[in-house]
Nucleic acid binder design. Structure first.
Lengths: 159, 159
DNA sequence: CATAACTTAATTGTGCACAACCCAATGGTA
DNA sequence: TACCATTGGGTTGTGCACAATTAAGTTATG
């Protein structure tokens, strides 16, 4: 709007101090937003007795039914080092149960208990609460996701 | 997609299933980007022997000189429960030293050692590496920060 | 001066993320 | 058959984030 997108050198001609400032703010803004999300989710999930990562795992199960740990991990991009204790906590809370697959004894299938399935009802209003708290329009949400998607892909390629 | 993008009511008329999907993706995109950033920083900071939060703390000290823990925490939005062990690790790595303030014995001032100050030189190229890895233009970075800033503020107000 | 209220760090406990490792089951191959 | 790489879970260790509590010091107020 204010200035045309420069077709020339993009950022390589900025001084180090400016680069440092910008860079700091990018990752920092991201962390700040994550942290703020965490706070809102903590509040919204308090009554359900779930943390945000636990809520994500429950969402996967609510949506897809019984799944092996591996599949849950792939959907959430979490490895067994994170999921194993998390699922154990969900199990000791009586929301899920884990069972070795008869066909492949290496695989552990996680399925909801009655209590776990019943919790879905109480979790339904959560997304609306969260999205409302963002204060963003749907268009902005979509644009943000698009940018973040490209960002993540670039970073993943670089890492 | 039964209705055109209405300029009026924003999201309150979307069905729960769609809301759930959108919402999921917002926080999820954010987490994915954070994770990807983490990987790139891990790689970039490996030679310096710093983690990303440690790098942030060092940046604050490089920029502002000796500071009490409280001030570092305010800049990074971290509390003492996070900072105390982090700073202790930096101290045992010989990069900083902690000293009770003579004026106010409650306050602990953190200052760089010679090694810590010297590390700045080797950290200078990091921001350029990171920003390059994002694959974003300066305009996009600024727009992203603006959106994230508003998002964070809304979420903080809601939390 | 004495006490209450506030401030600053540190500590403790819970939970998440990730790397590195181990173990058992699987599946292919010689 | 015996061998071996792969796969799926689990465990351990390190480090970050945050809540709640404690301890010590400072300031305000009676």
């Amino acid at each position: 709007m204010t200035s045309p997108p420069t077709p020339g050198p993009d950022l390589t001609d900025l001084p180090d101090t400016e680069l440092l400032r910008l860079d700091h703010q990018v990752c920092f803004s991201l962390q700040a937003a994550s942290r703020a999300f965490g706070g809102v989710y903590r509040e919204a999930l308090k009554d359900l007795g779930l943390t945000y990562p636990q809520y994500l795992a429950m969402m996967v199960l609510w949506e897809h039914g019984p799944l092996p740990v591996k599949m849950i991990g792939e959907r959430l991009h979490l490895d067994s080092g994170t999921l194993s204790p998390l699922l154990k906590r969900l199990e000791s809370a009586g929301l899920v149960r884990r069972r070795r697959s008869p066909e492949d004894e290496r695989s552990v299938t996680v399925h909801l208990t009655e209590a776990g399935a019943g919790l879905r009802e109480r979790a339904l209003p959560v997304p609306r609460t969260i999205l409302g708290a963002t204060g963003l329009s749907v268009q902005e949400v979509l644009a943000l996701q698009e940018t973040l998607g490209r960002l993540t892909e670039s970073l993943s390629r670089a890492g």
